[in-house]
Structures are given as C-alpha cells and as structure tokens.
Design a binder for these strands. Structure first.
Lengths: 278, 278
DNA sequence: AACGATTTGTTCGTATGTATC
DNA sequence: TGATACATACGAACAAATCGT
C-alpha cells in the first residue's frame, strides 16, 4: 500500500536536496550511514540512490561518496541567425554570458554515400544518388560541445565545388564557399528539435555517465536555395544537460543575450503549485 | 578489465534491438530465461534490463514481461507562428501528419503572487510587484500534451483587463483580448528551449514512468509589447519522448508540415560511423 | 469467482572487486 | 599500506500483477 521503501528514501532525500538542506556539491551520508539512518539494508539504499541518479539529482564517485549535482550553467545557442548554427557562430558560454564565443571546430571527416530513405527524401534526391557528408567535432575551449554532420548532394562537387570533398575546415563557412563557387545562396531553412538517448560514440565524446540517463538534443536543419531546391541537411547533437537554445522573433529588446532566468527556475513552474491530478 | 557482466548483457540486447532482431513491441525472454542464456544470476539480468530502461529501449510490465519500446510518433509544434504556441495553435498530431490539430485546453487556474527573483527580472517589475498567473492543462484528444503557466503584470488588470483574473479559457486568445481591452500588441518574443527531469506533478499528469528517465521540454516565452515593455512570460512543458519542435526561417518550400524524417533517424548520424575517440 | 502458474517488483544477506585518500 | 566508499555479483524469500483455467 505505501510506497516501497527505496522510493520513500529517495523522495525524502530529494526533498532535502530541493529544500536546500543539501546544497549542490554537498556530499550525502555514505551508504552505510544511510543504511543506519533509514534502518534499511545497503542494497535498498543503493536502489534509492540509483533513482536519484536517474533523475539527475546526485552522482556517485567510487572511493569518494555520493554528491548533489548542481544544474550546469548552459551553453546558449541562438537559432534565428544563420551564423548562429551550422558554421559555428552565435554561442554564449557560461563564463561569457553577454558576449558570443567562437567554438573550435575539428577538420571534417569526409565520407561519400548513396542517399537512401530519409536522407534521400529530405534532400529530394533519387534513391541511390551520391551524397557527401562532412562530420565535425566542435569544442568550446577544451570542452566537447557538439557533433555535427552535414550532407550535400554530390552534384555540387561535379559542378565545381571541389573543396567540399577536402578534409579541411572552412572557417569562412561552407555556405559562403558555395556562393562564391557556384552562386548558390542559402535562403531559408527548417530546424527540427528533438531529444533522444545518446549513441555510444556521442556518450564517449561528451563524457556522459554510462548509465545513459543524460539525453542529447538533436537538431536537424534542412536548408534550401533560392530556387527552393534543398541545399543541405545538417544534424547536430548536444548534451541536453548543459545546452539551451534561444530563438528570437521580431526585434527583441535587449535584456542581455543571456536569458536572465537561465540557471534558476521561475519561482512557480507549470506544475509547481498543486492540482493537476484530474 | 572487460566490461562488467550486466553491461555486456545490456549491450548484447541493445544490439539485437537496434539490428531489428528484436522489433518494437517484441517481448524479450523472461528474466529466468535470460539468466540461463547468459549464465548469470537473476539480479544481474535485472541490472542489465534497468540499463536498457534508462536508455529508453525497453519497458517492463509486471506480470507480463519485458518489451521493446518503439519510438513514439511525435507531436510536432511549430514555433515560428504566434498561434503555434501560447494560445494552442499550430500542432501536428501523429494521426494527422499534414493537417494541424487543435488542442483542448482546460479552464485556467488563476493565482496571484508577488513577483520575485527571476520572474520579476524577466517581466522587468519591482521585486514584490503583483503578478497574475494562469495555469492550464492542454490535451490532444484525450491524451495529456502539455502544461502551461503564463504570468502577467497585475497592472493590466488595474487598467481594465479584468477578464485576466477569470478562471475561464479564452478560446480566441489572451493576446487578442489584451489588444481589444487595452490596445496592447504582442510584437516580438524570445523562446528559450531546455530539457530537465519532470517534477512529480508533471510526471503524474503526463503518466511518465516513475523511475524518472523521461525528460520534459521546458519552453519559456518572454513576449514584449510594441513599446518594448514585457507583456508576459509563458512556461510550457512537454514530455520529451513524444514531442518535437520545428522552426521555419524564411519561406520554406512545402515538403509537408510533417518533417519527412520524423520517426526515422537518418541512415547516418553525427556519431554513427566511427572515430571520434580522439 | 477462485485458483494456480508465470512474471516482474522489493528486500534482505553476503562476498569480493576497484577507486580514492 | 590500510581504511573507506562505491561497484559488481550471487543467492534467497516473499509480494504483487497478470493471465488462463
């Protein structure tokens, strides 16, 4: 009838964390101490702690203890400017809340594939048409920040944009290069934002805990030329526990590029008060 | 030195799921069968399954078994039109991929607070100034879809917009009402997208599994009047396992409002091929 | 409606390994 | 090196949910 013991213990600890009794960075009592405090077995205590880990509230460090994790100060990416995404542009780092940072970008890994299924659909190519992909790691300072892959129709290369297949970053941007080489302009695009579990490569690159509770944002940008023909598909992933995205519509007054509220939830959230049980 | 047993088992099962050998909805072998197959104890099998649950790959049903979960067909919300968000407008449901659906909205729960901290900052009010909050549950069909709270400066009510404090939904939209009552226009806004663990009320409303591995999107919209003064702050949360957001920049060609790729990842993802271990 | 079989959920005990200080 | 703390693995017993008879 009542909650199982490990859940009650987890809820009790969660209350202590959210009330501030256990501040961020604080070490929890050890498993053996908690076992005595709650009069449970060590395994039951461990079940409770696992629940708090999955909820993102605590982390364990072998040989040290269990600690309250604070919300990470997020990287903030502006989505409404072309330069803010895709070529590595408008990003705000925690240490520079009001001034954009420039990410460091690895040289791309180039691959050539035959488009199939979704990829062919999105680029509006025949099934089996050749595409070129450019895959890059992106860092802010020394910290891994995002993984990005962009696919282009191969016919751009045939038409003269041969640098597309060179494994060298283009600091000025691929879009500008395509404009100069072929007169192609990226006029409009669609961004699609979703969240999913990381694959093993993403988990390793971002250094995510291997229990898999941290999710990644996946942002797909399909960009089109003036003519309406698809130009490229860009898929970028970011760890969801330290990234946020901002989109401005219209000329938004200057309250600082860094949203004032980031890092601190509103005093009252969508579900913070009561009710909602109906 | 090698991976622990429960992790190897989990990885083996994950491979079978992602290769399609175990399709969505398929029942896995029972814990006792897996115990014999992998020559492990039942508890070790259960540890492996817990990992797959946290990764969102399987779910367990007491008395029945363990099953592969398919990716849910997402609700798709368009963020670039005002009607698409805030008043309940442009949303595409899985059963209607090309035609917008109209969400059903509960009557609001009205509360009056004193703005403090973040809320006062974002609405640019004095600390302690009165604000009114309108909290609503939003459904698509019978399914819970999102929770939304909007805060307005109380002076709008003093100036004549008395319907703001009536616990009645405004199907035509609060923005239009404020325009008619006070001549106020919502001209521009900023959306901020983040992901976090659900609070208990959200978990219950959305029916999320109580182990807490499903995250919620939190979208904060700060809207401004023509004058540049803040109009309102809206915070909306959506379960992240069945919602996606789309933003169009420029006049995007018609490839269907439902992005062709949703539900199916690209054949090649940002981390799908190799390398990235550097 | 009742019962038994099956399957996952909870809780305990115990032993040993590994990381950190 | 020893002590401490978390990680892995096994065994066991009972509870609770589901399903078919």
């Amino acid at each position: 009838m009542p909650d199982p013991m490990y859940r009650s213990i987890a809820d009790d600890l969660r209350d202590k964390i959210e009330s501030g009794e256990l501040g961020r960075g604080t070490q929890l009592p050890t498993e053996l101490e908690l076992r005595d405090q709650y009069n449970a077995s060590r395994n039951t205590i461990r079940d409770a702690v696992k629940l708090l880990i999955t909820r993102g509230l605590v982390e364990t460090r072998p040989g040290q203890g269990t600690f309250v994790v604070g919300k990470l100060d997020p990287y903030i990416t502006i989505l409404d400017l072309d330069t803010g995404f895709g070529e590595g542009g408008l990003v705000y780092a925690p240490d520079r809340p009001t001034e954009p940072t420039t990410p460091r970008v690895s040289d791309p890994r180039i691959e050539i594939h035959q488009a199939a299924g979704t990829l062919a659909d999105e680029l509006q190519l025949e099934d089996g048409a050749a595409v070129i992909s450019r895959h890059q790691q992106r860092f802010i300072g020394d910290a891994p920040w995002s993984l990005q892959t962009t696919w282009y129709p191969m016919h751009f290369v045939d038409e003269g944009a041969v640098s597309l297949i060179k494994a060298k970053d283009m600091p000025q941007g691929v879009v500008r290069y395509l404009g100069e080489a072929l007169g192609i302009k990226q006029a409009r695009w669609r961004d699609q934002i979703s969240v999913r579990a990381p694959d093993p490569i993403e988990a390793r690159f971002f250094g995510l805990p291997d229990d898999g509770h941290v999710r990644v944002f996946e942002i797909r940008r399909i960009a089109f030329q003036d003519s309406g023909a698809p130009l490229r598909l860009t898929v970028t992933t970011y760890p969801a526990d330290r990234n946020e995205f901002v989109m401005n519509v219209g000329d938004v007054p200057d309250t600082g590029a860094h949203p004032p509220g980031s890092g601190q939830p509103a005093p009252d959230g969508p579900g913070a008060t009561a009710a909602d049980q109906g």
